[in-house]
Design a protein around this nucleic acid. Structure first.
Lengths: 187, 187
DNA sequence: GCCTGCTTTTGACAGAAGTCAAAAACCAAA
DNA sequence: TTTGGTTTTTGACTTCTGTCAAAAGCAGGC
């Protein structure tokens, strides 16, 4: 739990009361490799925080699995679209390693927002950081070549390369596995 | 100003006091075609709301202008990265038509957040919507073909096609102008 | 009406990336 | 060590998209 707080404090300081409330509202979830946190068509009712482990978000397109994000230690995890709108999810969330997560339901989180302005602020600030990250990734996807994207991945998030199978990395970069293999061989 | 409120209410209802405060904190900005709201290297100190008009965000890559978003009536406008981090912007924001905007400085907005939890909530909710939109656009950029993206543009945001020159639309879709022209000719 | 400049289209060619299929490498369990 | 399954690499070929250059289309000003 202390790990959760130390991550949360990176966004915004928290009063003792807010911390106590958070402590009472999150519950621990332990899952093993290959289990699903969410499947396509279900409504995502929880926000998770990853304490230890790794997972991926993917959806099915023409029979192929498209992995489009990963989460590791210290990341928030949810189907953003489904969680915020309470519509059925289009994607799946699957564990890549045995993992420890903290979960809070949407209702409980809304209740925390009502009781603690500072918690809603923390989330607002977290959203800003995640938005900027996504914007950067979007610009890369649209305007950089496959090789450039791979090199940037090596620079910025080497843990992805170390912990994730090649096929899923290729998908994450928006290229075929064969192309990624060729890029690697000529670097 | 009423237009601003009617847009804001789509995110979250506002008390009379909050509305009065907002009224006192936003100021009107009128700009003509081709003027710049922000240039590369400057820190973006304001959040804008577009009442009337159109503009684009673009940055320079190898001597070429890459247009990667547009804003129209009812949109919030800022350099998200620069505004939230107060780092120099990497992009330019330029008017595409004579426009009417409402502006608020970062400090004033933070002050509103402190005084009105409900205003920070409204922004938190707005962030969620914008994040979902960006996520969708990212997935399209990475995993759909150029032709699919163009068709989706026609379906979902036909005003872009009507009001924006082809070269900038091509850039927005992440393809060359020639390719877009060919896609159009064979539809 | 007729320049002039800007936008859009067309043509020819080159390069990047995808697909399908097979081979090689790797890994874990028996 | 052998075996079976999975992951990664390699090869041959095709398709999509980009680039450069030229032509066509269009709009405003004179």
């Amino acid at each position: 739990m202390e790990q959760l707080f130390s991550h949360l404090r990176k966004y915004h300081p928290l009063s003792a009361e807010a911390q106590t409330a958070i402590q009472n509202c999150f519950s621990q979830v332990i899952l093993s490799k290959n289990e699903f946190l969410l499947t396509e068509g279900k409504i995502c009712r929880h926000l998770y925080f990853m304490e230890q482990g790794a997972l991926r978000g993917f959806y099915n397109l023409d029979g192929k699995e498209i992995t489009y994000w990963f989460a590791f230690e210290g990341d928030f995890v949810t189907s953003f679209h489904s969680f915020t709108t309470q519509q059925p999810a289009v994607e799946n969330i699957q564990l890549l390693e045995g993992s420890v997560l903290w979960a809070i339901s949407k209702e409980t989180l809304m209740d925390l927002f009502n009781r603690f302005h500072e918690i809603e602020r923390l989330v607002r600030i977290a959203y800003e950081r995640y938005y900027v990250r996504l914007e950067e990734r979007f610009v890369n996807a649209q305007f950089r070549t496959a090789a450039e994207r791979y090199e940037q991945l090596i620079q910025q998030t080497p843990h992805i390369i170390e912990r994730i199978p090649l096929g899923q990395i290729a998908s994450y970069l928006g290229i075929s596995q064969e192309t990624l293999s060729r890029i690697r061989s000529r670097l």
